[in-house]
Design a protein around this nucleic acid. Structure first.
Length: 434
RNA sequence: CGGGGUGUAGCUCAGUAUGGUUAGAGUACCUGGUUUGGGACCAGGGGGCCGAAGGUUCGAGUCCUUUCACCCCGACCA
């Protein structure tokens, strides 16, 4: 992409309502803009990142044997009446009416829809297990949306549902998804922890959350430095008072509390702030029983499906990458999430030698299927560098005044290091780095 | 859903206590020129239903009423 032709409206100042780094930088760098409370538009850069994350999620799930579907976003209210959630979920569900005054709900989640879909189509234990997922828009009418993409009302989420003939098989799938999620978050380049979680109102026997470690996280988790124990503090402390008193709680008390739970390896425990980007649940037959979704077992007897459910906040991940990876100058995208891997900056567009080399490299990298931006704007060096840092390209090739000496520079966003490379070596060097 | 706050140029914000020329600044944008290694400089220019509706007044960005939107703290958040 040529920067001169791109739609990337960057600004020097952040809108006053943005308080978190991810919110400020994603807006300042022209990735997203706010449409209303908890509603965001994705501009070209934001859309690219969103699609990259979506593609990685899809790839790993497909590899693990899941099948992608797409459920309708607008759902008849009757679906929610049958499960009782039109009452229990209350105002979180946004209700709308059509021209016939029929009531509908914008899907906040899709347990009911998926059970209805599978019910009476999968009727034998021989057809199990089955794991279906979608990556689709959700709408939850949060009482107070905030923090940009981290807590929007409309958001992109991957939601998966599995069906099994036995609890053992359901647990097998649950463990498979835990491993699959680890692969996904690792590929995205994130520092994350898996923690025991509160099963909450959805019920079920087990649940785990995946947290991206970041100071701005809304959740507090306890992790052990010696084993893989981790837990959301909600599972350790029963009352609000205890959580409020957390700061005064002594280290020993925490240690004892946690040992009582699961960690007895003797390692050091510490508190961390986390952003919940994934959550997996063992559902059991809660929904299949309620909606009378049965299969026939080996003896021909009808039994409700054993189910599990798996979620990943895809649009939340976009913000999470930046919460974990930024500095005072802007975004630092991981290699897997960067909208463009390489930014070629022509320092002075009037300099014919610089422009010629820039164009040549641009063609060559594109031919090699490298995602590359060519900054061919008329602006000055400093302006273009600030812009590149704000956006957060992993590498910027600077074609500037050193070209006279046969040298160009590679600026690495993460380390802010500049290395000089001979012009004839630049292509091989950048291919080696990315 | 309780409590608090803010709506003025694309963006960040003055101006509103005490109503009174043609509503301002910075930034961004356009034109010309000078510049070209860290968000440049000079000159000129365009851009506003002062969130919306109603009211008070000779006169409203400013006062009153209604309403909409957004933000912050809290509660809530499979």
């Amino acid at each position: 992409m040529r920067r001169s032709r791109a739609f990337i409206p960057t600004t020097k100042e952040a809108p006053s309502e943005a308080t978190l780094p991810s919110h400020q930088f994603l807006i300042r760098a022209g990735f997203i803009n706010q449409q209303g409370a908890g509603l965001y538009n994705f501009m070209p850069l934001g859309k690219i990142v969103l699609e990259k994350i979506r593609a990685i999620v899809k790839e790993e799930l497909d590899r693990a044997g899941c099948s992608e579907v797409q459920l309708s976003f607008v759902t008849p209210i009757g679906l929610w009446d049958r499960s009782g959630r039109s009452d229990t979920m209350g105002k979180e569900m946004l209700r709308i009416s059509d021209r016939h005054q029929n009531e509908f709900v914008l899907s906040p989640t899709n347990e009911e829809a998926i059970v209805e879909l599978v019910k009476n189509r999968v009727t034998s234990y021989k057809d199990l297990p089955l794991n279906l997922y979608q990556i689709n828009t959700k709408f939850r009418d949060e009482a107070r949306p905030r923090y940009g993409l981290l807590r929007g009302r409309e958001f992109l989420m991957k939601d998966g549902y599995s069906f099994h003939a036995s609890t053992e098989d359901m647990i097998r799938e649950f463990n498979l998804m835990e491993e699959t999620y680890k692969k996904i978050f690792t590929r995205l380049g994130l520092d994350f922890r898996v923690v025991a979680a509160d099963s909450g109102a959805i019920g079920g026997t087990g649940s785990k959350e995946f947290h991206v470690l970041a100071d701005s996280g809304e959740d507090t988790i306890v992790i052990c430095d010696a084993c893989d124990y981790g837990a959301n503090i909600e599972t350790i402390f029963e009352s609000e008072e205890e959580i409020d008193a957390l700061n005064e709680m002594s280290y020993e008390e925490l240690q004892i509390k946690s040992i009582d739970e699961k960690c007895s390896c003797g390692g050091n425990l510490s508190f961390k702030k986390g952003i919940e980007v994934g959550h997996i649940f063992q559902l059991g037959d809660k929904y299949s029983s309620a909606l009378e979704a049965n299969f026939n077992d080996e003896n021909g007897k009808p039994r409700p499906f054993e189910m599990a459910t798996f979620g990943i906040g895809v649009s939340r991940l976009v913000a999470s990458v930046i919460e974990q990876n930024h500095d005072e100058n802007g975004c630092i995208w991981t290699k897997a999430t960067a909208p463009y891997m390489v930014n070629i900056m022509i320092s002075n567009i009037k300099d014919e030698a610089q422009t010629a080399l820039g164009e040549e490299l641009y063609e060559k990298l594109q031919t090699s299927h490298v995602e590359v931006m060519l900054d061919d704007r008329k602006d000055r060096f400093g302006f273009k560098m600030k812009d590149a840092e704000l956006i957060g390209f992993p590498y910027t090739i600077i074609i500037g005044k050193e070209l006279e000496n046969g040298l160009v520079q590679i600026f690495e966003r993460k380390t802010k290091e500049n290395i000089s490379v001979k012009t004839e070596d630049i292509y091989s060097k950048i291919m080696e780095l990315i």
